[in-house]
Design a binder for these strands. Structure first.
Lengths: 151, 151
DNA sequence: CCGCTTGTCGCAAACATTGGCAGGATGAAG
DNA sequence: CTTCATCCTGCCAATGTTTGCGACAAGCGG
């Protein structure tokens, strides 16, 4: 069981929201992806179990989950927003501009940067999921091979 | 004149796109805001000059500008995407969760972090506009005053 | 188990965004 | 200046997302 089956119900309840069959299905669907997933995927996955569920319910539930921080929402730049079950420790994503590949990194490197920002600007950064774009190792090398050296 | 009036036409042309009256108006509208602005604002501003312009033209032009990196698109978390004219040097935004205020920072602190990521994960980060959430100085202090010490 | 209160769901309508197409504008060549 | 090929725009339709509302179900007290 990927998600905190025993926890999310409590958090939901503590925030004054009810635990419903639909919400459970939707959260399961997000977990089932075990990584980034889209609204469409969640909808399709939920539909396989319950064909009466409505799109608007998916939208509302996902917004709620994001608000309660049970689920992370990330804009990958390609326009559509991806959702992901929140893991216990913060992590961030590197998305390659060329191949589109994603890789996950811990937040050790970023924490130092956050501290710098805090010292220099008096701003306490609490972002726990950043998406950064760039070039992965393979694509950097691919470019170096294609680009004529010396230009 | 805020935007690089002489540059954007060249960049547009170099990328094989045409310089049209509509695109000029739309880019002007983005510049006029001189900061973050929304699609709706751009539309309203353009409409004041030319009432025949269509919404789809705004969408298409903004997408093009973002692709050419004349304009930055940022998801501030509140759901809607904000656009901003690209400045000459990269910068990033700190958005306060409590008061919603934004502050701009240079990329010195982040560049070191990018280098770390590059060394440790072989990923060359090229993101030049990050939005990070947290608490600004004032809101941190406000919280400390409200929270009963000793709990 | 039953009924009550209130939050949630499914439906449909409103609103936002994107795509196809025909006419019009742009930039280049004659 | 005129013509031409191409790209862009505006309109319309399709799609994606949000909202309002009556019916329904979750959680609570009997």
């Amino acid at each position: 069981m990927t998600h905190q089956s025993l926890h999310w119900e409590k958090e939901m309840w503590a925030a004054g929201h009810r635990v419903t069959r639909q919400r459970a299905l939707i959260l399961d669907a997000v977990c089932a992806a075990d990584g980034h997933t889209s609204i469409g995927e969640v909808y399709a996955r939920v539909r396989r179990v319950d064909t009466t569920i409505d799109r608007s319910t998916i939208y509302r539930a996902l917004h709620l989950f994001v608000e309660l921080e049970l689920v992370l929402a990330a804009d990958t730049g390609s326009g559509d927003i991806l959702y992901e079950i929140r893991k216990l420790q913060p992590h961030h994503h590197l998305v390659c501009r060329d191949c589109g590949g994603e890789q996950e990194i811990g937040d050790a490197a970023l924490r130092m940067m956050f501290d710098d920002v805090s010292r220099q600007h008096g701003f306490r950064v609490e972002t726990d999921h950043l998406v950064m774009f760039g070039l992965c190792h393979e694509c950097v090398r691919a470019r170096e091979h294609h680009v004529v050296p010396g230009t």
